[in-house]
Design a protein around this nucleic acid. Sequence first.
DNA 1: CGTCCAAC
DNA 2: GTTGGACGA
Length: 324
Amino acid sequence: MGNAALREIAVIEDVSFDSLDGVVAVDAHNWLYRYLTTTVRFTSEDAYTTEDETEVANLIGIVQGLPKFFEHDLIPVFVFDGGVTDLKSEEIEERREQRERYEEQLETAREKGDARVISRLESRTQRLTDVIHETTRELLTHLDVPIVEAPAEGEAQAAHMARTGAVDYVGSEDYDALLLGAPLTLRQLTSSGDPERMDFEATLEKHDLTWEQLVDVALLCGTDFNDGVDGIGPKTAVRKIHEHGDLWGVLDTEGEYVEHADVIQELFLNPNVTDEYSIDTELSPDIGAAREYVADWEIPDTTVERGFERVEDSVAQTGLDDWM
DNA sequence: CGTCCAAC
DNA sequence: GTTGGACGA
């Protein structure tokens, strides 16, 4: 499978939080997804559900997740998804159908009372609703955290911003950022240990590949968008790309076929991104307004108190508003 | 979902 | 080297 293969190829090293500073573009969708699942797991449902049954666990997740950046001199820029490409829409449609199947399985598991299956499926069926996106934007705005609206994929836009030097890092948990050419990607920003830094140029050098060839290697091993070729893993893929120059050379001699290969190549090499955005990294968060906003959504003080205190402290200590 | 191990 | 299954977070 693709992800494990890319990890094998990528140059990744552990870095300490202390050694980092700068601006990191975060794919809002992925980040929210992670924090939603953990928030939902460790917080009582009442805490993030309003009287009319609207679930806004994202507000808790944001308050608890942002201090991690501020306390380590990192300024996040949240990049939101825009429209989608054709291939991507197909994929999303497939995922939607799959999610419905999971929900059916979930019902069965509940009937049987199988706790392990229930929690596994629940994390998969977590939805990012319009309310969640909107309230996320508003809370981030109160905290003066920069927001960028991507024309298509947030991940691609984040990588573009890193490539053009507008930000120092992409913050992401998956390996797509490497294929999108993001120079430096920080992984595991959300977990408690030290993060990992994935290095694009070092990866190309290590295997003597061009960016295009790296994407072809990934296509042979399998990506989120294709299954890859049977019997070809990371080692063989790199060797065959060296031998034949590119994906088409390999596929020709192998008599193999990868569906949508040309579209997937473009998705990584020439994604739909924009330079029409502005980010101000001198933050002056209005923590009072943020507290009020969260309270308006009926989130109990006790759940977010600690998070807001950490934001306040890190702002006071590092002077975020005159950091840059 | 990531890591480990056994089998081909 | 690659794959798939088991297993734990």
